[in-house]
Nucleic acid binder design. Structure first.
Lengths: 103, 103
DNA sequence: CATAGTACCTTGCGATACAAAGTACTTTGT
DNA sequence: ACAAAGTACTTTGTATCGCAAGGTACTATG
């Protein structure tokens, strides 16, 4: 899959996953990679960006099965942005499909 | 609309328009901007890239209503790539919609 | 003869997906 | 005891490409 296609949608994917409940980074990577090819080098910097923009927050939880996990939770601002981006995605993909079919 | 969303799809949009018949650059800009916000500064460099990759070809036609027009035509290679990219787009948008709905 | 519309092109910037490399912990097999 | 595999996080650098901004040049209209 062309990496360019993912641009702009991965942020929405992460917000959408966190919308349904808190997750730690590695788990988010695995959930998204069920649907498309993705690596940690993409997701971790994205999580940092989202946190810097205060769309998500994080907390550490110790784990018995490995290193401590950093859980992420969506903020109210994140929920608002998620809904905006979801609407944008819908209208965008509709526009593309219209163009592909020939107006 | 977020500019990042368009990444990777504009190329397919142009190929898809040319699939249905030759067009000149300015016309392509106008057709795409019926569906989404786009400027010449995006499309002309893209047309150059597509031509460099031999997915499209071009020829000049004089015009009575202004400067000469550079018409673009899709090549056989362009047609192949267009079909590949269209399939990619379909599977990609399906994957995103699945992720947004929560697997 | 100025303005608007048509039509082309280029430069530079910003955003971001990803490869690659590194750290550190636990479990399992030998 | 120790290597290997799996879990989990992080950082650095590179490549791509959408777009703003600027430019050229032609025709038609008031």
């Amino acid at each position: 899959m062309k990496s360019q296609l993912k641009r702009g949608t991965l942020e929405l994917c992460v917000l959408s996953i966190l919308w349904r409940g808190d997750c730690y980074g590695y788990e988010i990577v695995n959930r998204i990679s069920d649907c498309m090819q993705i690596t940690e080098g993409t997701v971790y910097p994205l999580l940092k960006r989202l946190k810097d923009n205060m769309l998500i927050d994080s907390y550490i939880v110790e784990s018995q099965e490995g290193p401590p996990r950093k859980y992420y939770t969506i903020t109210d601002m994140g929920r608002t942005v998620k809904e905006e981006q979801e609407a944008e995605w819908t209208s965008f993909s509709t526009a593309i499909n219209k163009l592909l079919k020939g107006d």
